[in-house]
């Protein structure tokens, strides 16, 4: 078993308030992992720290055996679908151009996207059923459609690891399921996928591993092992009554 990501004793704090406390886990290559927990449990913080967007107070993260700074050709290794708030939706840009951004790493500095890149981007839009909207300004789309454009961008980037930060926020059940199916396909191609999500119902069907957070890592492992009533009560408080057997 190969561990593609290793997180050791990770502690992250915003000023004096700890957002993550002594979190350790490993992620296997070719697996699909869900990061779950309440709002403010540190889910996005964990993902952003893994992506080097936030500097930890303590602890060590290695991706493919390297610390983030030392990873060569990052664009070939790590793709990312941002949380919705992180993007400037008013930006003068159309869907095809957004997807083309997934090719920027491959194209390299000082060069322009060529016909091949455009074709790949268009193909990716087709795959996610968005080719009809290729020349729409990005904010003219619905939430689910925006999501698909960003998935197409990650797809066209063709990276080994795929990070998705709350991809199902404000997205209907149909789009969510379609996205999960597409992620399954990517997993079958050997990609490793991490998803920050609030949807506990989909865990068992689609995910190999769950990280249950509440600042500390309450539990990690297969969905069955993690989503026990005791763990859920600890993570979500007494309010959580869920039938996860389905």
């Amino acid at each position: 078993m190969t561990h593609i990501i290793n997180v050791q004793n990770l502690t992250v704090a915003y000023r004096e308030v700890p957002a993550l406390w002594d979190v350790s886990f490993s992620i296997q290559k070719g697996s699909m992992t869900a990061i779950v927990g309440t709002n403010g449990a540190g889910k996005s913080t964990l993902m952003k720290t893994m992506l080097n967007l936030i500097q930890p107070v303590r602890g060590e993260i290695t991706i493919m055996g390297e610390s983030y700074d030392r990873i060569k050709e990052k664009y070939k290794k790590i793709a990312y679908v941002p949380q919705r708030e992180a993007v400037d939706w008013n930006f003068p840009i159309n869907c095809l151009d957004v997807v083309l951004m997934g090719r920027y790493g491959h194209i390299g500095l000082l060069k322009r996207p060529g016909k091949k890149d455009r074709d790949l981007a268009m193909e990716a839009l087709k795959r996610f059923g968005m080719e009809y909207y290729h020349d729409r300004q990005i904010d003219e789309l619905s939430g689910g459609q925006k999501q698909r454009v960003f998935l197409a961008r990650a797809y066209v980037q063709d990276a080994d690891l795929l990070f998705l930060d709350e991809p199902f926020g404000g997205v209907d059940a149909k789009t969510e399921q379609m996205t999960l199916e597409l992620l399954q396909e990517e997993k079958k191609r050997g990609r490793t996928i991490l998803v920050v999500t609030h949807d506990l119902h989909s865990l068992k069907k689609y995910f190999d591993m769950v990280l249950l957070l509440k600042t500390k890592l309450i539990a990690s492992g297969q969905p069955d092992e993690v989503m026990t009533p005791e763990n859920l009560t600890e993570a979500y408080g007494g309010m959580m009554h869920m039938d996860l057997r389905g």
Binding site: K48, L51, N52, L53, I71, E73, K74, Y75, I78, A79, Y80, P82, A86, V87, D88, F91, I93, D97, V98, M101, Y104, G105, I107, L109, L110, R112, P113, Q157, F163
Partner: peptide, 22 residues
């Protein structure tokens, strides 16, 4: 003009630009 696409990406989605190593 030299960094046309890079500036476009940084302004649109800064985190992504950092992650892919720009």
């Amino acid at each position: 003009i030299s960094f046309w696409k890079e500036y476009k990406l940084i302004m649109f989605d800064r985190a992504y630009a950092e992650i892919i190593g720009l």
